[in-house]
Structure formats: structure tokens, C-alpha cells
């Protein structure tokens, strides 16, 4: 019982202290930029109504999901192809290094030239392109870093090309692929928000900036909090998926460290 209490204290102690500090420090605040936390919380349900969630939040998340999924698909396919062929890798490496180094937000003005920025297409392309490079490059590294013995064993067991790809190469590269996907997800969230800041738009990011421009400060704060919660939630979901799919790897690492 005491260990349970102790664990709960360790887990919740600091968050409670911080929220309480925010609550009391802002309680009597008359500063327009720092409204009392109670005001922000009161504004939350009236701001994020069902209408807003369906009209702003869901479309944003859907675009993020589609763009991220596209990037995972293309990144893994292209990354595996490049990783398996030394010639292709040598050919593509400097080009990939450049595209990886371009900060993804500058894609926004470029893509705005092609697709405009009011529809979904430009935003999805922005998110997908921004997410692509970390996944692609990590897949290349993961495929390249495979233990040669694994490939040779698979060959000597006469596994077909596809089986080798499916059961040896991809699982072997998957820890690196997940590393890339995790980086990509946080870039995707950034791009989800800023792709909505250009032109007239609806969406989570657009809504928050509209609150700020119209000086609806408590509403703006609710948007910041909501966006933060979404970031935390996405990271948590990612962790669950990763732990499930990489369970073998986590176990292996623990054994290696133990020995």
C-alpha cells in the first residue's frame, strides 16, 4: 500500500504542484495575456464544442494521419530499395542529405505555388514530404546495418526474395524505421499546424491563430492546451504501437544488457 502511494506521489506529485502553482499564480491575474487558469478551463467546453471538433480538429488530424501514412509507405519502400543496393545508395546519398537538411516548413511556400493552400492536397503533401526524409534515411541505415550472417543464412535456406524481404530485411530494419517514424511524427505535428497558418483556413492550427488575432486570449490558451494534449496523446499511442511491434527487440536488448 505504501509503495503504491509512493508511486502515485512520484507520478503525480510534480504535475499537481505545477498545475496548482499555475492556478494560484494566475488566480488574480488581470494581465490580458495570462488569464487565470480557472477562466481558461471555463472557456474550454464552450470553445471546443462538437461543431469545432468535427470541423477543425478532426480534419487536421486526418490530414496528419494521411500524410504520415504516405510518408511511412513511400519511406519504407524507397528506403529498402536504396538500402539494398550499394550503387543506388551512392547515387542517392548526397541528394538525400540535402533534402533531409532542408527545414520542412520552407516546403510550405514551395507547395503553395503548386497546389495553393486552401485545399487538403497542399497540406497533405507538405506533411508527407516533411515526414518522408527521417523515415527514408533511417530505413536505409536499418537495411544497410543488417547483420550479413542473417542475409547469408536466409539465402542458404533458399528463402525467396520476397520472403527474405518480408521476414529478414524489414523486421531487422524495424527498430531504425521506428526511430525515423518517431522523429517524423513530431515534424508532422509541426507541419500540421503551420500548414494551416497560410491563407484562409479551417483546422486546429488555424483556429488557435484566429483566437490570437481576435484577442480571444482564454480561447487561445485552450487551443494551446488542446494541441499539447494531442501531442502527448500521439506520442503515447506511438509508444504503445512501438512496444507491441518491437517487443522482441526490447527483450533482446534487455538480455544483452543483462549479460
Amino acid at each position: 500500500m505504501t509503495t503504491l502511494l509512493k508511486r502515485a506521489f512520484m507520478l503525480l506529485g510534480l504535475p499537481i504542484i505545477l498545475v496548482a502553482a499555475w492556478w494560484f499564480a494566475s488566480a488574480g491575474s488581470t494581465s490580458p495575456f495570462w488569464p487565470p487558469l480557472s477562466t481558461i478551463l471555463e472557456a474550454f467546453p464552450t470553445t471546443w464544442t462538437m461543431d469545432r471538433i468535427v470541423g477543425d480538429v478532426f480534419p487536421s488530424l486526418a490530414r496528419l494521419g494521411i500524410g504520415f501514412a504516405l510518408a511511412v509507405l513511400v519511406g519504407i519502400v524507397a528506403g529498402t530499395a536504396i538500402g539494398l543496393s550499394p550503387t543506388l545508395r551512392a547515387l542517392a546519398e548526397p541528394v538525400l542529405e540535402f533534402f533531409r537538411a532542408v527545414p520542412p516548413p520552407v516546403l510550405v511556400p514551395i507547395i503553395a505555388l503548386f497546389a495553393g493552400y486552401t485545399g487538403w492536397l497542399g497540406k497533405i503533401v507538405t506533411i508527407a514530404l516533411g515526414c518522408l526524409w527521417p523515415i527514408l534515411l533511417n530505413t536505409v541505415e536499418g537495411v544497410r546495418g543488417l547483420e550479413p550472417v542473417l542475409g547469408d543464412t536466409a539465402k542458404s535456406y533458399q528463402l525467396s526474395r520476397w520472403r527474405r524481404l518480408l521476414f529478414v530485411v524489414l523486421p531487422g530494419a524495424s527498430p531504425r524505421i521506428f526511430t525515423g517514424a518517431r522523429q517524423a511524427l513530431s515534424i508532422g505535428v509541426i507541419l500540421m499546424v503551420i500548414s494551416e497558418l497560410f491563407g484562409a483556413n479551417r483546422g486546429l492550427g488555424a483556429a488557435i491563430v484566429q483566437f490570437q488575432r481576435s484577442f480571444a486570449i482564454p480561447q487561445m490558451w485552450t487551443g494551446i492546451i488542446l494541441l499539447g494534449l494531442i501531442g502527448v496523446l500521439l506520442a503515447a499511442i506511438f509508444k504503445v504501437v512501438e512496444n507491441r511491434m518491437l517487443a522482441w527487440y526490447v527483450g533482446q536488448r534487455q538480455i544483452e544488457r543483462g549479460v
Binding site: 499546424v193 487561445m220 506520442a235
Partner: peptide, 12 residues
Amino acid sequence: LRPIPSVALIPL
């Protein structure tokens, strides 16, 4: 705090 996207702070 870590996964909170920094762009959320833009309006602030």
C-alpha cells in the same frame, strides 16, 4: 511536456 509541439507556443 516533451511531446508538446513547440509550434503550439506560436500564438503566445
